[in-house]
Design a protein around this nucleic acid. Structure first.
Lengths: 216, 216
DNA sequence: GTCTATATAGCGATAGAC
DNA sequence: GTCTATCGCTATATAGAC
């Protein structure tokens, strides 16, 4: 659409950017679906509608393209702190809402594929996994810790270590459905009622453990 | 050691079995360490001390060998219900012991590698993952459900859905350390004291939620 | 039944034309 | 800056000798 941004960058790049975007889009799709080894540079180039050398002109090698694609997919997948904007409901309702949002986030196809990619990433990409973890799950836990702290201050909960409680909450919500899904396990049942029961049970168990009316 | 089982099987196989065992051993090691795509049939043959064709004479193709190796590793990794043999201690001590055993099991290198293999197994090996899940985690949860039921009967705990409580317990124990380890995340701290604190917190939270002295 | 040598194919990365 | 054609390498699977 945009003709050309005049003379923005280097020696001259007419339609550079949209081709780069197409390549990244193709890379994201294929890497997520078939993994690192299962995706060839040919396939990426073909799907992007460009030649293989064009791919290599934008990205030095396969691992570089992989890293960039995963990074983009991560920030694309990251919610805009969607879960702490519940208001004016009972604490249980708020926790249920957070649980539903978190569960549907981590069990989405994109999240599952991302997890799989990172568990088997290109060679030893520990740095990438590290960054993903800090920017993703850890940030969510941190934000949820803030939520819990406000509830504790309001006398709705009684928690000594808020950080650890946040971790426990998310682990309970994920349950083993998430683990089964990661394994590609077939019996990962996703009956809506089943999931709702699971989430409600997790929230109730959490609230029961951290209810303010007990003298432990 | 055994010379030959006389004429047990087909046309005749002198030292067949020990070579087959060597191949499977090599396959288990290499697949677990480098994954499916990262392991070549050459490497397996070399490590097993046999020729590549000998490998193909015992296993029709790579995927078949992979399946067999993973299956063997699974039953090899499965504990002999090690965790319900605690006796004569406080309930908390028993749960702590179970938690430690379970945690060291699932965070062992072998378990982590197995999980990684199954999340990215050869092609669409959903059946294999299914069998693994039923024979592994699900069996453990079932056994632990029995443990919980006995405690409930003894008035030590108050649990409506024992099965779900068992799932929650194991999820709490795994925590996000397990998930971070699966991702190959570098900041997976394994300070002994840190882990003990995590396990104790999980057990306390569990007991607090299902303590018998409350009228919910 | 086992080994050395090879056929076949696919992938990552590059050289040269336009 | 982009494309067609190709090199170099590796891997799976197989043919023929002992």
């Amino acid at each position: 659409m945009n003709p050309i941004p005049a003379k923005a960058c280097g020696p001259g790049r007419p339609k550079d950017l949209e081709k780069r975007a197409a390549i990244l889009e193709a890379a994201k799709d294929l890497f997520l679906e078939h993994g690192f080894d299962g995706t060839s540079m040919d396939a990426i180039a073909t799907r992007a509608g460009v030649s293989k050398l064009t791919v290599y002109s934008h990205f030095t090698d396969k691992e570089c393209l992989f890293t960039e694609a995963v990074r983009e997919k991560c920030i694309e997948q990251m919610p805009t702190a969607l879960f702490d904007v519940d208001v004016s409901g009972s604490l249980r309702d708020q926790l249920i809402a957070i649980a539903q949002a978190f569960f549907s986030l981590v069990t989405s196809d994109a999240s599952i594929s991302l997890h799989r990619l990172l568990t088997t990433g290109a060679g030893g990409s520990t740095k990438l996994a590290q960054k993903f973890w800090e920017a993703g799950p850890q940030a969510l836990q941190c934000a949820f810790s803030g939520f819990l702290e406000r509830e504790v201050a309001a006398g709705q909960l009684q928690i000594a270590d808020v950080r650890r409680a946040a971790e426990q909450f998310f682990c309970l919500i994920k349950g083993d459905l998430h683990a089964r899904q990661l394994c590609g396990c077939a019996n990962a049942s996703f009956d809506k009622a089943e999931v709702d029961a699971h989430l409600a049970a997790a929230v109730d168990m959490f609230m029961c453990a951290y209810a303010p009316l007990r003298q432990a």
